[in-house]
């Protein structure tokens, strides 16, 4: 086989990648431009906020409480080996606020909301509803993308704040019923070592994740092609790319805060 064929394949893959990155960049910049220019659609922003913030509460809450509970148990297993059981409350609080709250809430919302956004916008694309918006003097970015971006950006931090509290409560439940903490002891241990920066860094992460989830949902939906199969693919791509970006961004943001 001609070795140049292989080079050709590598080149094509690389060019496709660049094309996607370019298209995503243009999409993001256009969307951000429309975020700051009127007209705005407060009714649509409100609806998306309820969809993301309120209807994700059960999923995020369940995830958080079981994570907090298992965290308490597992850290007990570890810390009992060098008699540091007292640190369990602190470990649960720090892990939840800095790391697990934002990441797990982000991943759950990516599955729930990112998929729904990609499916809805993708269906609108393939049934020409997005073209119809344009012919009715309405910019699809303003009508569809901006409300979702704003809702993602603002609602995820609130969800994560709730997840932090529920997660710590999960740790409290296990700590007081199974691990011999007194209620006051657990709460004061949690409170004593928790710094504002722990919570704030988690909320900043959450805002970034919320933006990425909505962006991926809208981008993949908007660029879906070819009927039901295309919409299905867009949905998968939205969830997978949002999840990966959340994990990558999580590291980058952690490093950023770590240096402070």
């Amino acid at each position: 086989m001609n070795p140049l064929v292989l080079l050709g394949v590598v080149g094509r893959v690389f060019l496709t990648f660049l094309r996607h990155v370019g298209r995503l960049t243009v999409f993001t910049v256009t969307a951000l431009g429309h975020c700051v220019r009127p007209p705005f659609f407060p009714r649509l922003i409100g609806r998306q906020m309820i969809e993301i913030g309120y209807f994700s509460l059960p999923v995020v809450g369940l995830t958080a409480i079981f994570t907090g509970m298992v965290l308490a148990l597992q850290s007990h297993t570890g810390f009992a080996r060098f008699s540091a059981e007292g640190a369990i409350a602190t470990v649960v609080a720090l892990s939840m606020t800095r790391e697990l709250g934002p990441v797990l809430a982000g991943l759950m919302v990516a599955g729930r909301i990112g998929a729904a956004m990609a499916a809805e916008i993708g269906t609108m694309r393939v049934t020409e509803q997005i073209d119809a918006l344009t012919t009715l003097s309405t910019n699809p970015y303003k009508y569809l993308v901006v409300p979702r971006l704003i809702a993602g950006l603002t609602m995820l931090p609130i969800l994560v704040l709730v997840a932090d509290i529920i997660g710590i409560f999960g740790g409290y439940l296990v700590g007081t019923t199974k691990l011999g903490f007194t209620p006051i002891g657990y709460v004061s241990r949690t409170w004593e070592f928790l710094e504002p920066m722990d919570v704030i860094s988690g909320l900043v992460k959450a805002a970034a994740f919320g933006f990425v989830i909505a962006l991926m949902g809208c981008y993949h939906g908007n660029h879906s092609r070819g009927g039901a199969q295309g919409v299905g693919k867009a949905t998968t791509n939205a969830v997978v790319s949002a999840s990966i970006l959340i994990l990558v961004l999580n590291y980058l943001l952690t490093e950023l805060f770590f240096a402070q």
Binding site: T127, D131, A132, L133, L136, S137, N139
Partner: peptide, 18 residues
């Protein structure tokens, strides 16, 4: 957008906002 206010379009699949 201003031009579009003077134009109407009937799409093949109606393309109603569901």
């Amino acid at each position: 957008e201003r031009l579009m206010t003077r134009v109407g379009m009937l799409f093949q699949g109606a393309a109603l906002f569901d």
